[in-house]
């Protein structure tokens, strides 16, 4: 079990990670969800022994690894947020270089390279320079390099940032298979809640350096079980209507997005009638009205009052 206990990181006066606790059980797939700047990358750097925490511990099977980082480095595969590769070298050469650093050589190394290229599906283009790859291919090879030494745990820092949906799907599917078929423990960082929802058994939600909620997807959503979301689509956006919605008895929260309004209301509150009445008096047409089951996005919203992505 990999464990972070009371991890904290302060840069000058900026508290990037504020006393977080986190654990990874063997074979688990765990998500770390949070907006940009939440402190995910900083937390991951400390967990993977690249950065000393200001305070707190990282433990591998109960043993503190901060002083003896090599204890954990062999079992750890880390996929950095950046494309941490040599663009001048081919995919094959990159894999070979990093493989050698892990002490692999000869036939074993060649076999390993073939197998990870197969996992990420880039075998055919392995001899092209990485600089010639598309964004999605770069991301895939970025993952492949982290797998070269057969790690037990893979830590991925936003591995799908800035790529097309198809490549993204490919990567998500690949991560799922690594976890379910190869039994690899996964710590998956993202600011896309769909990804975390799809891949992870357990989720930590981070904001402003703190873990603000944790649990399985169901557990997290049940935070909102006493609430539901009413989604209105209007023919126009009108400030006076929005204001009246905010002031309407029973409405907990209003989120505006152009001509659509999201109202968070207590479960079972029968507000549709009053909403339509107000719409009429404000001369606003309601094009559609929807009552939604909450998502992680709503959970985040509920917890922070902000959207996950802006």
């Amino acid at each position: 079990m990999l464990e972070a206990v009371g991890l904290r990181k302060v840069f000058k006066k900026n508290v990037a990670v504020d006393d977080i606790n986190l654990y990874l059980e063997e074979g688990e797939s765990v998500g770390l969800l949070g907006p940009n700047g939440a402190g995910k990358s900083t937390a991951i750097s400390m967990i993977s022994t690249l950065m000393d925490p200001t305070s707190g511990d990282v433990k591998w099977n109960g043993e503190n690894v901060l002083k003896k980082p090599n204890k954990i480095r062999n079992v750890l595969g880390v996929v950095p947020q950046d494309i941490a590769l040599y663009p001048e070298l081919s995919a094959y050469e990159n894999l070979k270089f990093f493989g050698k650093l892990y002490g692999l050589k000869g036939k074993e190394l060649e076999l390993k390279i073939t197998s990870v290229l197969d996992i990420v599906g880039l075998e055919e283009r392995k001899n092209e320079q990485v600089s010639k790859y598309s964004g999605g291919m770069k991301r895939r090879i970025n993952i492949a390099v982290a797998l070269i030494h057969d790690p037990q745990i893979i830590i991925m820092d936003e591995p799908t940032v800035g790529i097309d949906p198809q490549s993204r799907n490919h990567i998500l599917e690949m991560v799922r298979r690594l976890n379910t078929e190869k039994g690899m423990t996964v710590l998956y960082t993202s600011h896309y809640m769909e990804e975390v929802e799809r891949l992870c058994d357990r989720i930590y939600i981070m904001d402003h350096g703190k873990v603000i909620a944790t649990g399985t997807k169901q557990e997290l959503i049940s935070i909102l079980s006493s609430e539901e979301t009413v989604l209105l689509t209007l023919d126009q956006s009108k400030q006076s209507f929005t204001e009246r919605m905010k002031n309407l008895d029973g409405v907990l929260q209003v989120i505006e997005n152009d001509t659509s309004l999201k109202l968070i209301v207590p479960k079972g509150s029968r507000l549709l009638g009053s909403i339509f009445n107000i719409a009429e008096s404000e001369e606003v047409q309601i094009v559609s009205a929807n009552i939604q089951v909450p998502t992680l996005e709503d959970v985040f919203l509920h917890l922070t009052g902000r959207k996950l992505r802006d």
């Binding site: 750097s45 062999n74 950095p80 494309i83 941490a84 040599y86 650093l101 892990y102």
Partner: peptide, 14 residues
């Protein structure tokens, strides 16, 4: 260093 390739080198235990 900037693109964290150096991190990878450190992580390899070298």
């Amino acid at each position: 260093n900037h693109y964290h390739v150096f991190h990878r080198i450190i992580l390899s235990g070298q």
